[in-house]
Amino acid sequence: MAMRYARCKGGASWSADNIPYDALARDRVRDDTHLFYTVASASFIEITSDLYTYNLIEYFRHDSEVVEWLQNVWQKEELQHGEALRRYVRTAWPDFDWDAAYRHFLAEYTPLCTVDQLAPTRALEMAARCVVETGTAGFYRMLSEQSREPVLKQLAARISADEVRHYKHFYRYFLRYQAHERPSRAAVLRILWSRASEIEAEDAFHAFKSVFLVRNPETEFQRSDYTAYVDGISRLAKNHFPLGMAVKMLLKPLGLNPVLGRAILPAATSAIRFIFMRHTGSPTPSSGVGNFDKRRQAPGASADGERPSRLL
């Protein structure tokens, strides 16, 4: 019933069952440590969408339209993303204990995911959600375009398209709340900048840490492991993150007229490039509901396997 509702409302027209996991080219990903951490961490964040949705539903509990969409479309599709990515991880790296790592992630992250971390007004929270959807849409588009593995390329493209559609819904709700609450353009800009600049996304950090600990049970986790990983993603994003798409999506909530929009486009592009090239860092698409290595081996990797740049 939920999937029928999603589709009749313009929701996703695919499911994990449509992904040809049996055609996965394991030889192209088996030794790719960076990709392993990326996809496994992303699967944790996506499949934990019920926590994020609960917080948003609580915040917007007096708005039946928003609550209905969050419950029946957004949450269902985010959980579907998580399930599809989980199946990919289990197929590509069957030696990895996904369940044990996810239990560790839930135990650490659940207490941190609270309603009081949302924006101070409904309009500003909808603007913040636009930032999150921009980041995830760009992340999965980059993942799809740079992947050498056909099944992952297809899966990431489907997820990116869903995230763009989610952005459009959050933007529509932002306009509705903006008309009622009338936040200043400066306030909107501050929330856009603040949310986009959250390098210390707690869900992304704890997802990576949980994957790392289960994959390397004899090794003590160090913050430098995460930092090195983030640096690797930033280098990849410098050349491959869809910056043009991100700039257009992030500027839209500001409601700039065409003349002003063209005038500030160079400065806005430079600022957004700085943010995303530095903070795309988050090894995975962050939920936005939270404080926003070469010596390691991917499951099945050879002992001297190099940690390549993500997706290459």
Score class of each variant (00 low, 15 high):
95 D>R: 15
126 M>C: 10
147 S>A: 07
280 T>F: 15
74 W>D: 05
300 G>T: 01
161 A>R: 11
291 N>F: 15
63 D>F: 05
210 S>P: 03
203 D>P: 00
248 K>I: 10
81 H>G: 09
17 D>Q: 11
60 F>E: 11
54 Y>R: 13
238 K>Y: 14
91 T>V: 04
127 A>Q: 10
276 F>S: 08
86 R>D: 04
92 A>M: 05
268 A>T: 03
225 D>R: 12
204 A>C: 14
232 G>K: 06
299 P>F: 11
211 V>P: 02
266 P>V: 02
82 G>C: 08
215 R>W: 04
113 C>Q: 07
180 H>N: 10
170 F>T: 03
151 V>S: 04
155 L>V: 01
50 D>Y: 10
169 H>M: 02
123 A>T: 00
265 L>S: 15
7 R>Y: 07
20 P>Q: 05
149 E>R: 01
249 M>N: 15
49 S>Q: 03
78 E>T: 08
46 E>P: 02
34 H>C: 15
54 Y>S: 13
116 D>K: 02
66 V>D: 06
120 P>F: 09
256 L>E: 07
211 V>D: 06
193 W>L: 14
124 L>E: 00
241 F>T: 10
256 L>M: 14
168 K>H: 12
15 S>P: 04
213 L>W: 13
42 A>D: 06
14 W>M: 04
212 F>R: 05
164 V>Y: 14
256 L>F: 13
99 D>F: 09
78 E>P: 07
142 M>D: 05
101 A>H: 05
254 L>S: 09
147 S>Q: 00
104 H>S: 13
70 L>P: 11
303 A>Q: 06
55 N>V: 10
177 Y>W: 02
172 R>I: 03
266 P>C: 05
93 W>M: 02
296 R>V: 07
278 R>M: 03
10 G>W: 01
117 Q>H: 05
152 L>K: 00
66 V>P: 07
1 M>P: 10
20 P>H: 01
123 A>P: 00
267 A>K: 15
22 D>Q: 07
248 K>L: 13
174 F>E: 00
40 A>R: 08
214 V>G: 00
237 A>D: 08
40 A>L: 09
140 Y>K: 03
82 G>S: 09
10 G>M: 06
199 I>C: 06
16 A>Y: 13
58 E>C: 12
207 A>I: 10
196 A>S: 14
233 I>L: 15
196 A>R: 03
234 S>N: 13
152 L>V: 06
271 A>E: 03
191 I>L: 08
125 E>P: 03
33 T>V: 12
197 S>F: 02
220 E>H: 09
94 P>K: 04
100 A>H: 03
299 P>A: 14
203 D>S: 08
311 L>A: 03
26 R>P: 01
213 L>Y: 02
72 N>L: 06
263 A>M: 15
100 A>I: 00
2 A>E: 13
289 V>N: 07
177 Y>I: 02
31 D>W: 00
290 G>F: 04
129 R>Y: 04
289 V>H: 02
259 V>R: 15
18 N>V: 09
143 L>N: 15
177 Y>A: 04
201 A>W: 00
198 E>C: 05
176 R>P: 01
307 R>E: 04
